[in-house]
């Protein structure tokens, strides 16, 4: 039931997103013309600008929502954030290397994303190696350690910025956005969403069993060791690609599972797909909001989600505190 409701909301948001922009165009006609390969204004605006932007917002949101729900379930900690895997910082470092060292010139606009993916992958491997047993406290500590390391390297890169423009470009990239990206970014994100999502969903029963702790999960015949690694791997793939493509979009992975949880009886296995759907919808809505703001310097998507997410987070902490008082 909740899947249907969230699915319909997602579809509605996508349609609104295709209709939102600075120029008035015939969306349906433009879409048909774009599919037929015609180069009319409508086709270019809808097919080359709005469609990639909408699809990217949806996939990035889905990746962040799903990875947040999976990590919170795995670590049994409602405050776990996808950034914990160290993947986001790793991706940022990879992208920074592109801006400064000019890596992957062949890849063109997708170069930061590819380097980001590489950075996320390296950070994640280091983290998994350091965490070893994949126990919950170790994953948090190892993720924090790797994030700190990559954060320090990123700061060093910023420190030695060759020119202020490169620095500005990087900082803006880090703030997170899904605009000015093409369908080639979707080619990076979609497989990641399938693989990462598949890994996480294959461990649904483990996440449910882990509600009662590792001992119970093991005694129920679930392999918490291997399974946890697969979940961390899946989450890191999702976060790594999302950050590589769209920069840091804060709070989505942290907040979305909280919004969904009451509707699925708090079950960590049932919160996964709805979190992906709700994450997709929320990021797309935030991106629509940005396009509706008065013209001028564009507010970055990551800044908006943080601005909206932080008060929501404070409210959650407040609610949680009242429960314990």
């Amino acid at each position: 039931m909740i899947h249907v409701v969230l699915g319909l909301m997602l579809l509605g948001t996508a349609v609104i997103s295709l209709h939102t922009g600075s120029t008035q165009v015939a969306v349906l006609a433009g879409l048909v013309e774009w599919l037929r390969g015609l180069e009319t204004v409508d086709a270019i605006v809808v097919g080359d600008i709005r469609l990639p932007r909408t699809l990217l917002a949806l996939t990035v949101g889905a990746a962040l929502g799903l990875s947040g729900a999976a990590l919170q379930g795995l670590l049994r900690n409602p405050l776990a954030d996808p950034g914990l895997t160290g993947a986001s910082q790793g991706a940022a470092l990879g992208a920074a290397a592109v801006f400064y060292l000019g890596l992957f010139p062949v890849a063109g606009g997708a170069a930061p994303a590819m380097a980001g993916l590489l950075g996320a992958g390296l950070a994640m491997l280091l983290m998994l190696f350091l965490a070893g047993s994949a126990r919950q406290s170790m994953v948090i500590m190892a993720g924090l350690a790797i994030s700190t390391l990559t954060g320090a390297l990123l700061a060093a890169v910023l420190n030695f910025a060759p020119n202020p423009y490169a620095m500005q470009e990087l900082v803006f990239w880090l703030l997170g956005s899904v605009s000015e990206r093409g369908l080639e970014h979707l080619l990076l994100l979609l497989p990641a969403l399938l693989v990462g999502g598949g890994l996480i969903l294959s461990q649904r029963r483990l996440l449910l069993g882990l509600s009662l702790g590792e001992q119970v999960a093991d005694s129920l015949g679930l392999s918490s060791r291997t399974g946890s690694r697969l979940v961390v791997l899946g989450a890191a793939i999702l976060v790594g690609t999302a950050v590589s493509v769209a920069g840091a979009i804060g709070f989505v992975g942290l907040i979305v599972p909280h919004l969904v949880r009451p509707w699925v009886g708090n079950r960590p296995d049932r919160v996964l797909l709805p979190s992906a759907l709700a994450g997709a919808t929320l990021v797309c809505l935030a991106d629509i909001l940005i396009r509706l703001l008065p013209p001028g310097p564009e507010l970055k998507l990551g800044v908006l989600t943080s601005l909206l997410g932080a008060p929501l987070f404070i409210w959650l902490v407040w609610k949680e505190r009242r429960r314990w008082l």
Partner: peptide
């Protein structure tokens, strides 16, 4: 239980 699961859901865990 790490999450506020219902008693029914907890018992159903035994059927995993």
């Amino acid at each position: 239980s790490a999450w506020s699961l219902s008693v029914g859901d907890i018992i159903r865990l035994g059927r995993l």
